[in-house]
């Protein structure tokens, strides 16, 4: 598996680069290095949320159990990345704003994402019957998507926020992001996404084997 070693070395190089190059935001200083980890985590939390919605739609159309598995896996990984993004965000907030939590629009939207992930798994725990559980959680996943998207992408732009704008274009204008910073951030986004796909694939295979074993019994 050569690609695994490529990922291993590339991520290692990226980690070294993220610490030895000049800090991405000179005014904030050394702590701004957390950008290279915080942004990919937040990005993957959103990607996982969208993945789960897409698999939920496909489940309702095709009614295949493996599609429900994938929706659940995407939500589980999304929960992990959302927690990581929340924690790194709170750490950075403590250093730069002086408090861990102040209900900044960005913090509100990641908190809501966490609540949706939590609610999704509460629902799965409370419904009996494989098909009924799959259908109910798929419907909830799809239904929770539009208000959450509004909260993540529209609301932060309507309300004044202390959060450094997180799209790369905005950042470019605000921070005058150098090509070094941009390439490390881009590399980090790519490698974290590869990592996410790897984890997703492994979990999907485990679920598939478990299902096959249950059907054998």
């Amino acid at each position: 598996m050569i690609w695994q070693w490529v990922l291993f070395v590339a991520m290692g190089v990226l980690i070294v680069m993220s610490f030895i190059t000049p800090a991405p935001q000179q005014q904030i200083g050394e702590s701004s290095r957390i950008f290279y980890y915080h942004i990919p985590q937040a990005w993957l939390a959103v990607v996982a949320f969208a993945t789960s919605m897409i698999y939920s739609i496909r489940y309702l159309k095709r009614r295949e159990a493996s599609l429900d598995d994938r929706a659940a896996i995407a939500n589980a990984l999304g929960l992990v990345f959302a927690i990581l993004a929340t924690v790194t965000g709170a750490m950075f907030a403590k250093v730069t704003w002086g408090t861990y939590w102040n209900w900044d629009p960005r913090q509100t939207s990641i908190f809501v994402l966490l609540l949706i992930y939590g609610a999704y798994f509460s629902l799965r725990g409370a419904v009996t019957g494989d098909e009924r559980r799959a259908a109910m959680s798929a419907v909830y996943s799809i239904f929770a998507f539009p208000p959450a998207v509004f909260l993540m992408f529209v609301f932060p732009r309507l309300t004044p926020s202390l959060h450094p704008s997180d799209t790369i274009v905005d950042k470019n204008m605000k921070f005058a992001m150098t090509t070094d910073v941009a390439s490390i951030l881009f590399g980090s986004l790519v490698l974290f996404t590869v990592l996410y796909i790897w984890m997703f694939n492994l979990a999907a295979r485990v679920y598939k084997m478990e299902r096959a074993r249950r059907e054998d019994d």
Binding site: T108, V112, L115, I116, G118, A119, S122, L123, A126, Y140, F143, A144, P147, A148, F150, L151, F155
Partner: peptide, 15 residues
Amino acid sequence: LFSVLSFPILITLLL
């Protein structure tokens, strides 16, 4: 479960 599922969807509205 009703409030657990509804609240994340309603936050946008309540704000």
